[in-house]
């Protein structure tokens, strides 16, 4: 077989795999929509607000409920303690709508 034939076969096989994966995705998503109705019911009844992604700190377990100082567990500017703190960022501070300027003495 010519080398170009081998190359086209390789690309063809890859395309076929990608097509199969797309079909698997479509089926999985449609099946998930059925299961998610049951999960949504649990979310509604238990009034849940967050996903269980990391349970090591309260602000990574419930990022949407964390208080505005949650990124600085002990004092403003304290060094991040938990590794997931670098994955799950602090809450959006825009709602504070106030700029706090800290100036050193004499500046």
């Amino acid at each position: 077989m010519r080398k170009s034939g081998v190359f086209f076969s390789f690309i063809g096989i890859n395309l076929a795999i990608i097509a199969i994966l797309c079909i698997i995705s479509l089926i999985a998503v449609s099946e998930h929509n059925i299961a998610s109705k049951d999960i949504s019911k649990i979310v509604k009844v238990l009034q849940l607000t967050d996903m269980v992604l990391a349970t090591d700190a309260r602000y990574t377990r419930n990022p949407s409920q964390a208080d505005l100082f949650s990124a600085f567990q002990d004092y403003p500017g304290s060094i991040e303690h938990f590794p997931t703190g670098s994955v799950i960022p602090p809450p959006d501070m825009n709602s504070l709508e106030k700029l706090i300027e800290i100036k050193a003495n004499g500046s």
Binding site: V52, L53, A54, P83, V87
Partner: peptide, 8 residues
Amino acid sequence: LKGWSVIY
């Protein structure tokens, strides 16, 4: 994503 979580 798990970090130091025991339950995940």
